[in-house]
Design a protein around this nucleic acid. Structure first.
Lengths: 106, 106
DNA sequence: TGGCTATTTGGCATTATAGCCAACCATCTG
DNA sequence: CAGATGGTTGGCTATAATGCCAAATAGCCA
């Protein structure tokens, strides 16, 4: 693999890594509905707020979400709504796999 | 987050985790062109064959690729070509981000 | 200013991932 | 069957990711 390809693959991997966690996928799903502050997401996820904050920071760094401070709260929203397309695609993949597995058991 | 949602997020995360590695993304890209045996992929990636074999095994478990043994070689191919859709999408996201960063520097 | 709330950061322990080597298994060929 | 080739698996070490707590920061309001 040449250096250029390597760099491209690494850049892509950053996005996938950012999405490769249940809580972060949940955040993306929630933000798809509407923006949310950290406290709401923390409540929904049920983890420590520092943990949620770090998840958000990671998603932000990957360019998937953006933040906006209003008062003493920080609101997060989707930056690139096209991520939803592949969340949808992944859902389909999972369904297909479940069906395949069911078919194999017969 | 309720149990059902948690389970769905975890299932999705499996797919993203599988793609969250430069070599595995490279493999997906290569297999998008045509099927490949392990030896070819090993050659292209330039890692130990055991390493490549493990990457392939992970992608297979995630349902992204499938394998077929022919003679003493094993050929891998994409199982769910729709992954390409989001690889394309990710490419776009990266370009957008690069442009944004460039704009910010002005 | 002082206290309160919302969020981020640092630090640390736990766990998961990556990648190499060596050993093993399967298949082909002489 | 022996040897060669292609792949997988086990084991190990190094590195990265996760998640909690505690401490720090920022903005509100009295």
């Amino acid at each position: 693999m040449d250096k250029c390809t390597q760099a491209r693959m690494e850049a892509q991997a950053v996005i996938f890594k950012a999405l490769a966690h249940p809580s972060r996928l949940f955040i993306v799903n929630e933000l798809a509905r509407r923006e949310r502050c950290v406290c709401e997401l923390t409540e929904l996820i049920g983890a420590d707020k520092s943990t949620v904050s770090k998840h958000l920071s990671l998603l932000k760094q990957a360019g998937i979400i953006l933040d906006e401070k209003r008062g003493n709260m920080v609101f997060y929203a989707l930056q690139t709504p096209c991520v939803l397309d592949f969340v949808t695609c992944v859902e389909k993949m999972i369904e297909t796999r479940i069906k395949q597995m069911a078919a194999l058991r017969k």
